[in-house]
Amino acid sequence: MIINNLKLIREKKKISQSELAALLEVSRQTINGIEKNKYNPSLQLALKIAYYLNTPLEDIFQWQ
């Protein structure tokens, strides 16, 4: 199972779901689904999230 800290990191950086979704060219619902662990992002999307949040990938997504 993958645990993610996306919501915590996104809120710490004061970025809304809508703003992050626009940067990543995905829907706000996609961001919401990832934050709620409804599904895991593709590797490409995970890397883009880490890039736009300027945060190491392993700080956002962790195996458990």
Rank of each mutant, 00 (worst) to 15 (best):
Asn5Ile: 03
Asn40Trp: 11
Glu19Asn: 11
Lys14Ile: 05
Gly33Thr: 09
Asn32Ser: 13
Gln62Ile: 10
Asp59Ala: 11
Asn40His: 12
Lys36Ile: 13
Lys38Val: 14
Ala21Met: 03
Lys12Val: 08
Lys36Tyr: 08
Asn5Cys: 05
Gly33Tyr: 13
Trp63Tyr: 07
Thr55Phe: 06
Pro56Ile: 06
Ser42Cys: 06
Gly33Glu: 15
Met1Asn: 06
Gln29Cys: 09
Tyr51Val: 07
Leu53Gly: 00
Glu25Thr: 08
Ile34Ala: 02
Glu19Met: 12
Tyr52Arg: 05
Leu6Thr: 03
Lys7Thr: 11
Asn37Gln: 09
Gly33Pro: 01
Lys13Asp: 04
Glu35Phe: 02
Glu25Phe: 08
Ile15Phe: 10
Ala21Asn: 02
Leu20Thr: 01
Thr55Tyr: 07
Leu23Ser: 11
Tyr52Met: 10
Asn40Leu: 14
Lys36Asn: 15
Asn5Ala: 05
Lys36Ala: 15
Ile49Ala: 04
Gln64His: 11
Asp59Val: 09
Leu47Phe: 09
Arg10Ile: 03
Ala50Lys: 02
Glu19Gln: 14
Ser16Glu: 06
Asn40Glu: 15
Leu8Val: 14
Leu43Glu: 07
Gln64Asn: 12
Leu6Phe: 03
Ile15His: 04
Glu58His: 13
Asn5Glu: 04
Asn5Asp: 05
Ala46Pro: 00
Asn40Cys: 11
Ala46Met: 10
Trp63Ile: 06
Ala21Gly: 07
Asn5Gly: 03
Thr55Cys: 07
Leu43Lys: 10
Tyr52Val: 15
Val26Thr: 10
Lys36Glu: 15
Ile3Leu: 15
Pro41Gly: 03
Val26Arg: 04
Thr30Tyr: 14
Asp59Tyr: 10
Leu45Trp: 03
Ala46His: 01
Ile9Thr: 07
Ala46Gly: 09
Asn4Ile: 03
Asn32Phe: 06
Ile34His: 01
Leu8Asn: 14
Ala21Leu: 02
Trp63His: 05
Leu57Gly: 02
Lys14Ala: 11
Glu19Thr: 12
Phe61Pro: 00
Leu20Tyr: 01
Lys38Gly: 07
Ile2Pro: 07
Ala22Glu: 14
Thr30Trp: 09
Leu24Asp: 00
Asn4Leu: 02
Ile34Cys: 01
Lys36Asp: 14
Ala46Ser: 06
Pro56Ala: 10
Asp59Thr: 08
Leu45Ala: 03
Gln62Asp: 06
Met1His: 07
Ala22Thr: 12
Arg28His: 10
Met1Lys: 06
Ala22Lys: 12
Ser18Gln: 14
Asp59Phe: 09
Asn37Thr: 05
Ile60Glu: 01
Asn32Thr: 12
Leu24Met: 07
Thr55Met: 09
Leu47Gly: 07
Glu19Ile: 08
Thr55Glu: 12
Leu53Phe: 08
Leu20Gly: 00
Leu43Tyr: 15
Ala22Ser: 12
Phe61Lys: 00
Trp63Pro: 04
Gln64Phe: 09
Gln62Glu: 11
Leu24Gln: 00
Glu58Gln: 13
Ile15Trp: 06
Lys14Trp: 06
Asn54Gln: 13
